[in-house]
């Protein structure tokens, strides 16, 4: 019998502030220049040198620089990566291929698409959440892989 236990000690209400900021960034891009904030889509456009637009390069640059700027204001939040090298490579390949095949990731489908009530994005979100949960369950509690 599987039971659900919420780990309240790990709960961080400030995550809501982060989420609101993601929403604000999404809206600035949508209303500001009329484009969808889908990270996998914007990033993959950098791999098409003939089609890439300057704002896309700058958006990705903004993501890379954000922790440096954040660090000037306050200490960076805890970041712990415990994954092994083979898992990082395998997961990177799956995330890269999967997000292109499925036309989006947690941002494009999870935030933008669901906000538009797009049936495709809702189906994609349910699917990647489901398989993410199954993967962590099997990887952590059955195979002790992660």
């Amino acid at each position: 019998m599987m039971s659900v236990q919420i780990d309240w000690q790990a709960f961080t209400p400030i995550s809501l502030v982060g989420g609101l900021l993601l929403g604000v960034a999404t809206v600035i891009l949508l209303l500001g220049i009329g484009r969808i904030a889908g990270i996998s889509g914007i990033f993959s456009s950098l791999l098409k040198p003939k089609r890439v637009e300057a704002w896309q390069i700058l958006f990705i640059l903004g993501l890379v620089v954000s922790p440096l700027l954040y660090g000037l204001i306050s200490p960076l939040p805890a970041i712990e990566v415990t994954t092994s090298l083979p898992l990082l490579i395998g997961a990177g390949l799956l995330v890269g291929f999967g997000t292109r095949l499925g036309s989006g990731c947690t941002s494009g489908h999870g935030i933008c698409g669901n906000a538009r009530l797009s049936p495709r994005s809702m189906a994609a979100t349910v699917t990647f959440m489901f398989f993410g949960i199954v993967t962590v369950y099997l990887g952590r509690h059955v195979l002790s892989l992660i």
Partner: peptide
């Protein structure tokens, strides 16, 4: 695509 992404994300 969403399934493969979900597996990679979970890993």
């Amino acid at each position: 695509g969403a399934m493969l992404f979900g597996i990679g994300w979970g890993l």
